[in-house]
Design a protein around this nucleic acid. Structure first.
Length: 506
RNA sequence: GCCGCGUUCGUCUAAGGGCUAGGACACCUCCCUUUCACGGAGGCGAUACGGGUUCGAAUCCCGUACGCGGUACCA
């Protein structure tokens, strides 16, 4: 089928977006852009009981952060508006009626209690989850069994009812999945799914087919959890619009946690984020941590997600979004689920921190500093510092630990490593050194190092014996970039005063 | 239970009949570095099991096991 590539991501706004969801967005986006097509965001809010305020904002904000902007959406607009299913409600009913007329669906008047009674009656060890299917539909209150006049009067009197699909009994339904190849199902084993709910809203099954058709979606990618209901969708396509109009399906493998499927719980339990950005549940007050707040760069987040289940066949692992667009091939997506490895995720972030110019993320780091009480006044200086410590930072938040001492003198010095070997001669050396610093003409790392070594030689002490003490004096601990670089950056005054303060502690 | 989909180092994966099954993360060793890193060089470590097909199988077929998903008027 040769038509314009149009894909969609269709989340239901019920909470934060987790790894798997964002990866689905990403693969949709990459596929669309690779083929010069369009990426549509459609909000699947047909379940009004699950409406969560803020969830839709969250989705847009998250996609923007990732750089995965939709071409069409409730906010971006587009020729197929509206893009919110609740706003499209009126059009679903006619398709449901069309299916009934075609004998492919029927009205069901069973109350929730009656359904429950049926399930209880049929439940057994052999069949723990009885379905509303061809075996029982003959015993239920639906338009298949009730006299036509009664059906009509029930309808006329406004009796609550749903429309169910009538799954054929002994048919084999199959389709070709872009990732898995041919997949087939025995229709006798699929239940009569509800298509139109009693409140007049469509279920996902009807909505996805109708909207994909109306929005001219050419390729439909979704999580593997949808595979079992694919036969329902194929059947709806066949009777409503023709199977030749159906988008090409691809069911993406799941992302697993350390023990089974990845859940919010895993995040809390193992200490890594599961959502793209922080999500605060208004009702429970529960906060679920996001990659963004944990200190991930969007470039790294997108990169690591892309590689979780896909690769281009080469050994390259670091890709920009543009490169991903160029290389992406849906057929190379894995069939098996991938267990999420936070260690590897951190490695991606580390690589991106090293790779990107600091100016690309200094604003984010600045925010982190400000949250911790340090206001950045000199952007040039700030970025010099970041440049100096970036190799040591895996997460953006690490910049704080690695470089706070550039902005504020360490209060507590970790002197345990140097105190035992401290001598009066060393105190003397540093006193002389600060004196010499005052005379130093060129304040840069090389000059400082030269001076330091000359003075050490004059004092008859090995420079190595003195470098760690100097570090502790300036940094407060055994970490950080080369000492003379630090001294060069913080300047003469700070260097001198930190040494003098440290000498009072030794 | 039933249905579906999966299964290569601990983890992410390459190899889509043909070299000693390659890379990355993590871990370990060494080098560089009198901090911590970066970087460099090594090491450890896998085709779930059993049958076929074939001169030859990680790759194709069948079975078993295991894992995951689904089995709602939720998506």
């Amino acid at each position: 089928m040769n038509r314009k590539v149009r894909v969609r991501f269709a989340p239901s706004p019920t909470g934060g977006l987790h790894l798997g969801g964002v990866r689905t967005v990403l693969y949709n986006y990459l596929f669309a852009k690779h083929h010069g097509g369009e990426f549509v965001l459609r909000i699947e809010d047909t379940d009004q009981t699950r409406f969560v305020p803020g969830a839709e904002d969250y989705i847009f904000e998250t996609l923007a952060w990732c750089g995965l902007e939709p071409d069409e959406s409730p906010r971006h607009g587009g020729p197929f508006a509206p893009y919110r299913q609740s706003e499209r409600k009126p059009q679903y009913r006619q398709y449901a009626e069309q299916l009934v007329a075609a004998g492919q669906a029927y009205y069901a008047f069973d109350t929730p209690e009656e359904l429950e009674a049926m399930r209880n009656r049929l439940r057994s060890e052999e069949s723990p989850n009885p379905q509303y299917d061809h075996k029982v539909r003959g015993e239920m209150r639906n338009s298949l069994n009730l006299p036509e006049t009664e059906v009509q009067s029930l309808l006329d009197s406004g009796t609550p009812h749903v429309v169910r699909i009538k799954m054929p009994e002994g048919e084999k339904l199959s389709f070709t999945d872009l990732i898995r190849g041919e997949v087939s199902f025995d229709t006798a084993l699929v239940d009569d799914k509800v298509l139109l709910k009693a409140d007049g809203m469509p279920t996902y099954h009807l909505a996805v087919v109708v909207d994909d058709y109306l929005m001219e979606i050419s390729h439909a990618f979704r999580g593997e959890e949808w595979l079992p209901s694919a036969p329902v969708h194929v059947l709806l396509w066949r009777t409503l619009f023709g199977e030749d109009q159906m988008p090409q399906w691809a069911h993406l493998p799941l992302i697993l946690g350390p023990s089974g499927k990845l859940s919010k719980r895993d995040g809390a339990k193992y200490g890594f984020p599961v959502f793209a950005a922080n999500w605060a549940d208004l009702k429970s007050g529960e906060l679920t941590e996001g990659f963004r707040e944990r200190g991930f760069l969007p470039q790294a987040f997108v990169n690591l997600l892309a590689m979780l289940g896909w690769n281009d066949g080469t050994e390259q692992e670091l890709f920009s979004l543009d490169e991903l667009v160029q290389r992406f091939d849906i057929a190379k997506v894995h069939k098996g689920g991938a267990k999420f490895d936070f260690e590897k995720a951190k490695w991606f972030n580390h690589e991106w921190i090293k790779k990107l110019p600091v100016a690309e993320y200094s604003a984010q780091v600045q925010t982190i500093f400000e949250q911790r009480g340090i206001t950045v006044t000199d952007k040039g200086f700030f970025e010099k510092v970041l440049e100096l410590v970036k190799d040591r930072c895996t997460l953006l938040t690490d910049f704080w630990e690695q470089s706070a001492f550039f902005f504020t003198a360490p209060k507590e010095l970790d002197t345990t490593a140097i105190k035992p070997k401290w001598t009066e001669a060393k105190t003397q050396f540093f006193q002389n050194f600060t004196g010499a610093l005052a005379q130093l003409q060129t304040w840069d790392a090389a000059s400082l190092e030269t001076l330091f070594k000359e003075q050490a030689a004059a004092a008859g002490i090995k420079p190595g014996e003195l470098q760690l003490p100097l570090r502790i004096m300036l940094v407060g601990g055994k970490f950080g970039p080369p000492v003379f670089d630090i001294a060069a950056l913080i300047g003469k005054e700070a260097t001198t005063s930190r040494i003098e303060y440290a000498l009072t502690q030794l």
